[in-house]
Every structure is written in structure tokens, then in C-alpha cells.
Design a protein around this nucleic acid. Structure first.
Length: 458
DNA sequence: TGGAGCTTGAG
DNA sequence: TCAAGCTCC
């Protein structure tokens, strides 16, 4: 026995939390720590989600979640010493800053005679296990998934929530959570329709399995169809584990839909695998040929993209969905990213930074791997010449302009057939359109410019 | 997990 | 006239 501290980070749940279950062998002090360096690096939307998620976690811990503040390297060992804690547990992190912090802290704690257990609770497979037969890491998704993952042992089965003997905390410290909220109240509307926390994650998973899972493979591409799982923020904050999702899906009859959804979970694994192997994934081209790419500096264009004022309806709808809800449909993420990188020739890092700040599911691995994938500078990346035409994409995946009109209501003044490309409408129809900008760039010309830029690379 | 431009052939 | 198929970017 003894007093065991579980340090919660991106594992804000009780069920299927191997490190928490390990802590439950003793009397448990559940802790969340506000490290100033981590807070400074966190996006605004993520902080709002975290605020709600920590409240939910505290409730499921009978109000006994302890909130600490300070640099983890000093604040945590001090707390451990003051409270005569014998064992510290946490769920492993795989981002470079997290790995570095955890290694240093583990050494400090062990040097002080404290037992430390770090366990995997956020990935289906450890990123260092997936290696090609020649020992080098995979760079292509399909063999990574087929030979590196599926051929390995199946993912660990989920654990039940442990019974916790909680050590009562001496005073209420919940006011510390308020630092996560912004000064202005935009976050209230943003959270409409979201339900952060372990219970909300479970409900979202069940609703997905009972609903959109059937037909997922094709409907997932239609932004107005509500046919995706929307589990990403829950998964990012560890309110649900990938193992819980994987095994819940595996219980269903196997179809093309279940197989495809599992492969999407595996893309998340692949992103973490890449981030683990390439710690500078969020700022350095994986393919260094792209270091010579002639990016444009264009703050005005960047700002119009950020605010959903490019004059390209599907792009603006996506960027406004993001701004209003902290989320964007995956198909539309690819379209807006392609537009920023290829039609505007603005560096993918600018897009990554904006997504990091505004997405409630902003994730270091998914965000970096996906932006590099669109740019063509990453692993298994889209070929450079794959340039989405946002009008073609919109006509294909939002044929009735339902999604477009939801987020760009100005376009409701036009007949449906003109809402994908309003500039092509006859002048007398177009004049009904008040206050919606002309296209920021000509799609044909900017496509040609992008192809020329890419072909200029050595 | 593209698109543009071209040819071909049905209607 | 246009969808389908092909090639190249």
C-alpha cells in the first residue's frame, strides 16, 4: 500500500486507464498540473474543452481532483515529498516536449526514492514497435497498418474503471480552472452540441455505432451528412481510449464501414508513429526538397482565409465552421488546407498554427502529419500535383450546398446551383448577393502558379 | 484521399 | 453533346 499519485494529462478518464488502475493499488491522489510552459503552448479552443473536461473528471472523482500550478519539474516532486507519496503513475506521452519532461521528471522522482510507472493508455500500438523488416520506420501508411499493426498482437482489451480509495483533499481549488477560459465569451456558443468528459465520449461512441457507422465509408465525405464520429476531441483529451473505440467497433459485424473506421483510427496511430520518429514534424518538412519551396508572405490573404472571407464558398464555410464550433469536417479540412497551400502558396505552418489555436481536437501528431500530407512534404503524402478544385469538391460532396449555406448564409440569396461558384452566376442574379467577397484568387490561374512553383523544386 | 484536357463512341 | 476513359501534371 502507500499513497499513490496519478498525474492526469491527456487521459481524462477512469475506465481503461492502465496507469490509473496501477495507482489504484494504493490510496490515490488524482492530480492535474497547470505547467505554465504547457499552458502557453495550448490553443484557445483546446483550453476551453479542457476546462469542461476537468470539471467532468473532478465530478467522477467525487470532487477530489487536485489542481496544482507550477513547472512540472519542481512542482510535482515538491508535492510528492510533502504528501509522502510512494508511487507516481502517468499515461505515456509521445510528443517531443512531453517525452522530454517525463524523462527528466522520472529521473528526479526515482532519485528521491519514489516509484514511477508510466504506461501506454493513448495508442493501440507503441510507436517504436512498428518497424519494417529491415528495422527502419515505415513511411507509407498501408504497409504500416497491414504489416506493422494488423500483423502485430491485437490491441489490448479495455480495462474497467478501478475502484479508487481517494485521499480527501484539504481545500477546494477548482477556481484554478478558470484560467483556462478566455476573457470574452465566444466559447459559450462554441461548446454548443459538444459534451466534454468521459460520459460524453461514451455517449458519442454509442451514438456513432447506432447511427452513422452504417454507411460511414461513403457518407463520411459529405459534410452536411453528420456521418462522422466526432470523437476526435474526446480522443485527444483521453476521455476515451482508442482501445475502447477499437473493441467497440470490433464487436459489430465486420463490414466495409467498420474496416474503414478502424483504418481511420490507424491513421492516428500512423501520425503518432511519424511524430515519434520525427520530433520536428510540426515545423520541418519531412521531405527536405520542400525547403526550397517559394512560399508567399501574404498576411492579408492569410487573414481572409482565417476569417472565412476568401470568396470561395466551400472554403469559407469550412473556416467559419471552425471559428464557430471549434471543429471542421474532415473532407473540408483537406479542401481548405489545399487552398491555403496551393492556391495561396502560404506555408503549411501558418495553417497548422491556426488549426492548433482554433480546433477543439488540435492534436500535435494529427495536425502536423496532416498538414504535411496535404502539402506533399510529408510521409506517404499527396503528390504535389494533387490540387483540389474547391468548386468541384463542393459540387461533388455538398451538391445541394446545404453545408455551404449553413455557414455562409449570404449565399442563400442565390439559387442553389449558383452557390458553389457565385462569381459564375449572371450579373443580374449575382447582385442579390450582398457583402460576400469576390474570389481572393482565380482558381485556374492559382492552380497553374502552384504547379509552376512545385516544378521549380530541385 | 484529384483535376484538366484530350480522345472516343454512344445517342 | 456529353459521359467515360486515359494521360499527364
Amino acid at each position: 500500500m502507500g499513497k499513490h499519485l496519478h498525474w492526469f494529462r491527456k487521459d481524462l478518464r477512469l475506465a481503461d486507464n492502465p496507469a490509473l488502475s496501477r495507482a489504484a493499488k494504493g490510496d490515490v491522489l488524482p492530480v492535474y498540473l497547470f505547467d505554465p510552459s504547457e499552458l502557453a503552448a495550448m490553443g484557445a479552443a483546446s483550453k476551453v474543452w479542457l476546462f469542461h473536461s476537468l470539471h467532468a473528471l473532478n465530478q467522477s472523482l467525487d470532487g477530489q481532483l487536485r489542481l496544482l500550478s507550477g513547472p512540472s519539474q519542481t512542482a510535482l516532486p515538491e508535492f510528492v515529498a510533502q504528501n509522502e507519496i510512494t508511487t507516481v503513475t502517468w499515461t505515456r506521452r509521445y510528443d517531443p516536449a512531453g517525452i522530454e519532461m517525463d524523462q527528466a521528471l522520472k529521473a528526479t522522482l526515482q532519485g528521491n526514492g519514489v516509484e514511477v510507472h508510466s504506461l501506454n493508455g493513448s495508442l493501440l500500438w507503441e510507436p517504436w514497435d512498428a518497424k519494417k523488416p529491415d528495422g527502419t520506420p515505415y513511411r507509407v501508411f498501408t504497409p504500416f497498418y497491414k504489416r506493422g499493426c494488423q500483423a502485430a498482437a491485437p490491441p489490448r482489451a479495455p480495462l474497467p474503471a478501478p475502484k479508487l480509495d481517494l485521499v480527501k483533499k484539504p481545500h477546494d481549488d477548482l477556481a484554478l480552472l478558470d484560467q483556462l477560459l478566455p476573457d470574452r465569451d465566444w466559447h459559450v456558443d462554441m461548446m454548443d452540441g459538444w459534451n466534454p468528459g468521459e460520459a460524453g465520449a461514451r455517449i458519442a461512441l454509442e451514438a456513432f455505432i447506432d447511427g452513422p457507422l452504417d454507411g460511414y465509408k461513403s457518407d463520411r465525405d459529405v459534410p452536411a451528412a453528420n456521418a462522422t464520429s466526432r470523437l476526435s476531441p474526446h480522443l485527444h483529451f483521453g476521455e476515451i481510449s482508442p482501445n475502447q473505440i477499437w473493441h467497440a467497433i470490433a464487436k459489430q459485424p465486420t463490414t466495409h464501414d467498420t474496416a474503414h473506421f478502424k483504418s481511420e483510427l490507424a491513421w492516428r496511430e500512423f501520425s503518432y508513429h511519424l511524430l515519434y520518429r520525427h520530433p520536428d514534424l510540426d515545423h520541418k518538412n519531412l521531405n527536405d526538397k520542400f525547403d526550397a519551396f517559394p512560399w508567399r508572405d501574404d498576411d492579408a490573404a492569410l487573414q481572409r482565409w482565417q476569417r472565412g472571407q476568401t470568396g470561395i464558398p466551400i472554403v469559407d464555410a469550412g473556416m467559419r465552421e471552425l471559428w464557430q464550433t471549434g471543429y471542421m469536417h474532415n473532407r473540408v479540412r483537406m479542401i481548405v488546407a489545399s487552398f491555403l497551400i496551393k492556391n495561396l502558396l502560404i506555408h503549411w505552418r501558418e495553417g497548422l498554427a491556426w488549426f492548433h489555436d482554433t480546433l477543439v481536437d488540435a492534436d500535435p501528431a494529427n495536425n502536423a502529419a496532416s498538414w504535411q500530407w496535404v502539402a506533399g512534404s510529408g510521409a506517404d503524402a499527396a503528390p504535389y500535383f494533387r490540387i483540389f478544385n474547391p468548386v468541384t469538391q463542393a459540387r461533388k460532396f455538398d451538391a445541394e450546398a446545404t453545408y455551404i449555406t449553413t455557414y455562409v448564409p449570404e449565399l442563400a440569396a442565390l439559387p442553389v446551383k449558383h452557390r458553389h461558384a457565385p462569381w459564375e452566376a449572371p450579373a443580374e442574379i449575382r447582385k442579390a448577393l450582398q457583402g460576400y467577397p469576390e474570389p481572393l484568387v482565380d482558381l485556374k490561374d492559382s492552380r497553374a502558379r502552384a504547379l509552376a512553383a512545385f516544378s521549380s523544386l530541385p
